[in-house]
Amino acid sequence: MKKLLSVLALSLGCVFAANAAVVVVGNPGASDISKSDAKKAFLGKGSAFVVYEFDEGSALRSEFHSKVTGKSDSQLKAFWSKQVFTGKGNPPATVSDASAMKAAISSNPSAIGYMDEADVDGSVKVILKP
């Protein structure tokens, strides 16, 4: 019975996680961006943005990159390893949670990041819904 309850609880957690809507956010004065611009920014391709993302292993990070850059966690790790090794770039700064993301983005007009749409408040603006 305990195993059944554990499985049920884990299943419900997956359902709630699957309902999370990841959005790209910027400073409240930021303009909307295209999915293509977001992809370039998060892959360090000549963007004027200061980019923040969640720590490696975050489910939201995986969802974001699946939807926007088209890369899995392992592909993303390999991509950044190659960029660093060849001197072509460094991965974006990371934050641990939504409040740290909001603090980083609200304090810099050229900063962008992503978060669950449910965590958006007046300190950041949704600039893309992938």
Results as ranks from 00 to 15, higher is better:
residue 8 L to G: 10
residue 9 A to N: 03
residue 9 A to G: 02
residue 12 L to P: 03
residue 15 V to W: 03
residue 15 V to C: 05
residue 20 A to S: 10
residue 24 V to N: 05
residue 27 N to A: 13
residue 28 P to L: 07
residue 28 P to K: 08
residue 29 G to D: 05
residue 31 S to M: 03
residue 32 D to E: 05
residue 34 S to F: 05
residue 35 K to M: 04
residue 38 A to R: 09
residue 42 F to A: 09
residue 47 S to P: 02
residue 47 S to D: 04
residue 48 A to W: 09
residue 51 V to S: 07
residue 52 Y to T: 11
residue 53 E to W: 12
residue 54 F to T: 03
residue 56 E to M: 08
residue 57 G to Q: 05
residue 58 S to K: 00
residue 58 S to N: 13
residue 59 A to M: 08
residue 60 L to P: 04
residue 61 R to S: 11
residue 62 S to N: 13
residue 63 E to D: 10
residue 67 K to H: 13
residue 68 V to P: 00
residue 71 K to F: 10
residue 71 K to G: 11
residue 72 S to G: 13
residue 73 D to P: 12
residue 74 S to F: 08
residue 75 Q to G: 09
residue 75 Q to S: 14
residue 81 S to K: 09
residue 82 K to F: 01
residue 83 Q to L: 03
residue 85 F to W: 01
residue 87 G to S: 04
residue 95 V to G: 05
residue 98 A to P: 13
residue 103 A to R: 06
residue 104 A to Y: 14
residue 106 S to E: 06
residue 108 N to C: 12
residue 108 N to G: 07
residue 108 N to I: 02
residue 113 G to L: 10
residue 117 E to H: 13
residue 117 E to G: 11
residue 121 D to Y: 14
residue 122 G to Y: 12
residue 124 V to G: 02
residue 124 V to S: 08
residue 126 V to N: 08
